[in-house]
Design a protein around this nucleic acid. Structure first.
Lengths: 310, 310
DNA sequence: TTGAAAGCGCTAACAC
DNA sequence: GTGTTAGCGCTTTCAA
């Protein structure tokens, strides 16, 4: 019952040509001129035998795998919102990459001790690293060869080797501050493994330290919100907002929607959305790097601005 | 600057042994007895050269890739809740598989026309297919050889070749009906590509057709909920509930938490949760199949019961 | 226009 | 104990 997988050799035999010829027509190699008749025979045989190329073999000789890695740093006690936070982003990105013929490897890293062997083991053609801790970044930059396009997401890292893509929080905050709810009495931030980014966001908010809450667990959030019924607040990410809305009136909440699903919010909440812009940006950037690899990035940071149209 | 990747041959040269010997010690082959001294030299050289095995090469000879595919059917107009729905499940599953040394390929299928070549191209060792339409299932069952462990998730399919894992909705509904909110005036169902599953859930609810709403978009949901302020309702999935809670009092809502994040719900809502049980179940099942492949499943369906403890 | 053959990096007989 | 070697399936140079 098990169907023996057909190989180039099988097709060659069936079509009475050599494996080389089969390879040429299967891959549409333009540098070779193959008469229609031969082509037809080969294609016919391939169909007959349900030929599917073995990408491991191809990788081996071409020295590229067709795989793109999305490596996401996680910690032991990640709140459920951390899981959800990248869901839309990853889905969208995967779909874009798939549409371009790449296959996506999803891989969780231990934020405290990221194991990066997968990059070289699988000969990933490109890598996204999401939300890295600065102190572990050297593992990335040192341990593997330049030349593998590497895009760092949601991390502020002082390094000039790789592209880093973040949301433009300055822009988002500017929009937020222009909303009728401003000025805000407090802000709730869905914190990152990358401490610098978390801190940066806090500082851009311009609020005093005790008006800033980093989302850890529901318990402490509820304590933080206890006396804030009558104040307006700002939430970073839809999920921070959803949690907050359990304790305060959503009409007093402005939300910077960094998770790509603003529609999940109570209708009363004020939204600043980034839409799918980040997936698109990192996808385009990767395509650029894949086509024209370069020594280092031309800009330290790529900042994704908020979505003006909706 | 680009670091030349070391191969077995390089190590062999450095350690002054043969590639075979290197392979033996690298892989801890027990059938060979290697003296400590040799072992040490080889390991030393490997470390020195930053050796990382090339899994494509290994796959080629071992005829197994170490890759597990998670193939998720999607449609053009998937609501954001569909994206979020599998987020926790996939993350958890990926982590379990990664911990066992597998790498995970995430792949979106067009529910209307699923392209499954990736399975044979990448020689996936195991495959999860999530939420398949019945009419496309023949593409799966026919097109590829038995022997590749295949687990179908969230789909009711009349077929005896593969394992199918679903939530035990009978169980969940039984629990729901035991809640103080029962009997319910209506139910909101986050619908699936697999029509049979959607219908099954509707029928198990025991409610009249006009008390059943299939989540499509917010507009129609709000219409459905218009006159239901004073009734109690049941929502399938946290996200269906969140959407509903925009229009009705969450205290009147019982929720069958199929998305793994009950904590996102308003505290007033009544919860029936499945926890991480489905990821665990499909993981264990896959491990079983990977170790002892069999001709067909011993049971048609594996049903994951609701989580009794929390 | 086609094919022979080398070789990508690795594993596993089998020989020494 | 260790090494030689034949492939795994594919691409690509070079020769015919």
């Amino acid at each position: 019952m098990t169907i023996k997988k057909a190989t180039l050799k099988d097709i060659a035999k069936a079509a009475e040509v050599s494996v080389a010829t089969v390879s040429y027509v299967i891959n549409n190699v333009t540098s070779q001129t193959i008469p229609e008749e031969t082509k037809r025979r080969v294609l016919e045989a391939a169909k007959q035998l349900h030929y599917v190329p073995n990408l491991a073999a191809r990788s081996l000789v071409k020295q590229k795998s067709g795989l793109i890695g999305i490596l996401v740093n996680r910690t032991e006690n990640d709140g459920f919102w951390r899981q959800l936070h990248y869901s839309t982003f990853i889905n969208r990105l995967e779909q874009l990459l798939t549409a371009r013929g790449y296959h996506v490897v999803l891989f969780s890293l231990d934020a405290a001790d990221p194991k990066l062997d997968i990059i070289s083991e699988r000969k990933l053609d490109g890598v996204y690293v999401v939300d890295v801790r600065t102190e572990n970044f050297h593992l990335i930059s040192s341990r593997f060869s330049i030349g593998v396009p590497l895009i760092v997401i949601d991390s502020i890292i002082n390094d000039s080797l790789f592209y880093k893509v973040n949301y433009d929080y300055d822009d988002a905050f500017a929009l937020a501050k222009a909303s009728p709810l401003a000025p805000f009495g407090y802000i709730i931030i869905d914190s990152f493994n990358n401490e610098e980014l978390t801190q940066y966001i806090a500082s851009v908010s311009g609020l005093e330290q005790d008006a800033v809450h980093f989302l850890r667990d529901e318990e402490s959030l509820s304590r933080f919100l206890k006396n804030k019924m009558n104040q307006t607040g700002l939430a970073l990410s839809e999920f921070a907002a959803i949690m907050a809305a359990k304790y305060v009136n959503p009409a007093n909440l402005a939300v910077i929607c960094s998770a790509g699903c603003p529609d999940i919010l109570p209708n009363a909440a004020v939204r600043i959305s980034f839409g799918d812009l980040k997936s698109e940006a990192v996808f385009q950037l990767m395509m650029k790097l894949l086509i024209a690899p370069r020594e280092g990035p031309d800009t330290q940071y790529v900042l994704v601005k908020a979505d003006r149209e909706h």
